[in-house]
């Protein structure tokens, strides 16, 4: 089996246009299960790779990886944006183990496709990223959010020839709405796909839109990991042992 860096390089090759947005967080450790089979879905809502269309896949767990790999068959470049760290032997608020397995197993599938370095991107998110309520004392809090800084700007997309964005998700989450509203402001068309067809949507401005303090406020409620991304122990008031709880900086 490939090591972590080799696997990451398959998902984020140095020469690909969109690699600068890829997050290495879930490639930090190898999965415990590696003989996992891949069953990729049929893409019914898109016929071919359109160089003017960017896709955001925001589906729960490994479904997002499978959908992105199915889109890679059409010629799209999958870009993992997962930013929540996994903890192998502990209870985590967001379960990322199946995503890690899918990324490592899916690397083989990805090598089968010859993707252009400037192939249109499909950004991969986990719709469960903020699931689980809030901080639970004693648990490993690896909830995370996607911010406008984590994805290409509207200006960059327009320069790259992209004028349409399709969001493949069940709902549009608030953090993603901050990004989509910025795109809409710059006249990019936003479409939403539930899996069968796509429809044009008009964005609703989220609260704190374009606010300088928005990111700080959100991150203040999450737990950073020292190696990048989000993930850390929430201190249990009944325990006195300090386990590296860093909220912001």
């Amino acid at each position: 089996m490939r090591n972590n860096l080799e696997t990451y390089r398959i998902w984020a090759p140095d020469d690909a246009l969109w690699t600068q947005w890829a997050k290495p967080v879930l490639f930090a450790r190898q999965p415990s299960i590696t003989n996992h089979g891949l069953s990729l879905p049929d893409i019914e809502w898109l016929d071919y790779a359109d160089s003017r269309t960017m896709i955001i896949v925001d589906l729960p767990g490994s479904k997002g990886v499978y959908e992105a790999l199915a889109l890679a068959r059409l010629g799209y470049r999958p870009v993992p944006l997962y930013n929540g760290v996994g903890a192998q032997y502990s209870k985590t608020i967001v379960n990322v183990n199946d995503i890690i397995t899918a990324l490592f197993v899916g690397a083989d599938e990805l090598t089968k496709h010859t993707l252009r370095t400037d192939a249109p991107p499909v950004f991969m998110l986990d719709s469960n990223r903020m699931a689980g309520g809030g901080k639970q004392p004693g648990a490993y809090d690896n909830r995370w959010c996607v911010f406008p800084q984590d994805m290409p700007s509207a200006a960059y997309l327009i320069k790259a020839g992209i004028n349409r964005v399709i969001v493949r998700s069940e709902t549009i989450q608030n953090d993603l709405a901050h990004i989509l509203c910025r795109y809409q402001k710059e006249s990019l068309s936003i479409y939403h796909s539930l899996g069968k067809e796509t429809k044009l949507i008009s964005g609703v401005k989220p609260s704190n839109f374009m606010s300088l303090a928005y990111r700080f406020k959100v991150i203040f409620g999450l737990t950073r990991n020292a190696t990048g991304g989000f993930g850390g122990w929430v201190p249990d008031p009944t325990q006195t042992t300090y386990r590296g709880y860093h909220r912001y900086g």
Binding site: Q20, K23, F147, L212, A213, R215, F216, I219, Y248
Partner: peptide, 22 residues
Amino acid sequence: NLLLVFIFFDLSWIDDVLGNRN
């Protein structure tokens, strides 16, 4: 005060510089 830079300017050495390689 780097924390104030993050709060008021939305410039984060952790997220933007190390995380996003910006």
